[in-house]
Amino acid sequence: MSTSVKSSAKNPSELKPVLEEHHHALQVCSRIREGLENDVELERIRAYMNWFQKNYLEPHFEIEEKYIFPKLGYNVRVKKALANHRRIRKLLSCGCADEKVLNLLEEELSAHIRFEERILFKEINNKKELAEIEKQHHTISFSGEDWEDQFWA
């Protein structure tokens, strides 16, 4: 799987903080897959996902919904991105440690990131709008190593 960092060369440099956050989210998806493949207790993976949602994903979604999506208008692609956010939140809110739910969560999150980077963000080409997005966006500090139970290692 290619990472968002490699694909970011095609996106404007002003979106670099968002793309770096996407790279981290793709790492989390990889960790979910590794955990499932290695039969890690599902509760451990779910606990990591709850931490990730609270400390990283919700702030990231808020930035996109507040500063990026409005720049694109309320078109069909923005509606799809918002629907993706709702589905991901719903999967995270179930609170269950079900393998099917975790698989679906990983698939939804990684597909959503690819959609934003390959399709949605390509629509932002106004330099003034890009500069405003960059100004409003504060990179969310993320380190999976902050999580004490590194089940993927």
Rank of each mutant, 00 (worst) to 15 (best):
Ser93Val: 08
Asp98Glu: 09
Ser141Asp: 08
Asp39Ala: 12
His24Glu: 01
Val101Cys: 12
Leu36Met: 06
Val78Gly: 03
Glu99Phe: 12
Arg31Gln: 04
Ser143Arg: 14
Lys71Thr: 06
Glu99Val: 03
Arg89Ala: 15
Glu62Arg: 14
Glu41Ser: 13
Lys100Thr: 11
Arg44Leu: 11
Ala47Arg: 08
Ala47Tyr: 07
Glu145Asn: 09
Leu26Ile: 07
Asp146Gly: 09
Lys79His: 09
Gln53Met: 05
Arg46Phe: 04
Glu64Met: 01
Phe69Pro: 00
Tyr56Cys: 00
Glu41Lys: 15
Glu62Asn: 11
Val40Leu: 07
Tyr74Gly: 09
Asn11His: 14
His22Met: 06
Tyr74Ala: 10
Gly73Tyr: 00
Ala9Pro: 15
Ile113Leu: 07
Pro70Ile: 06
Glu106Thr: 09
Ser7Lys: 15
Val40Ala: 03
Lys16Met: 13
Gln136Arg: 03
Ser141Phe: 05
Phe151Leu: 05
Arg77Ala: 02
Glu134Thr: 02
Glu106Leu: 11
Glu34Ile: 12
Tyr67Gln: 01
Leu42Asn: 00
Glu106Tyr: 13
Pro59Leu: 03
Val18Gln: 07
Lys127Glu: 10
Phe115Arg: 02
Glu132Thr: 02
Glu64Tyr: 04
Lys54Val: 08
Asp98Met: 05
Asp149His: 15
Glu134Asp: 06
Ser8His: 07
Asn126Cys: 07
Glu99Ile: 03
Ala83Pro: 12
Glu37Ala: 14
Gln136Glu: 08
Lys71Glu: 10
Ser8Trp: 02
Leu92His: 03
His60Trp: 02
Ser13Trp: 15
Ser30Trp: 14
Asn38Trp: 10
Asp39Gly: 08
Gly144Arg: 14
Ser143Met: 00
Glu62Met: 04
Cys96Gly: 10
Glu107Ile: 12
Gly144His: 12
Asn84Ile: 08
Glu65Arg: 03
Asn125Cys: 00
Glu106Ile: 10
Arg118Glu: 15
Tyr56Glu: 04
Glu123Ala: 04
Tyr56Pro: 00
Phe69Ile: 01
Trp147Tyr: 12
Gln53Ser: 04
Ala131Glu: 11
Asp149Ile: 10
Asn50Glu: 10
Glu64Leu: 08
Glu148Lys: 15
Val5Tyr: 11
Glu34Val: 10
Phe115Trp: 09
Asn11Asp: 11
Arg114Ile: 00
Leu19Ile: 07
Arg118Ala: 07
Tyr74Glu: 15
Glu107Cys: 13
Val28Lys: 09
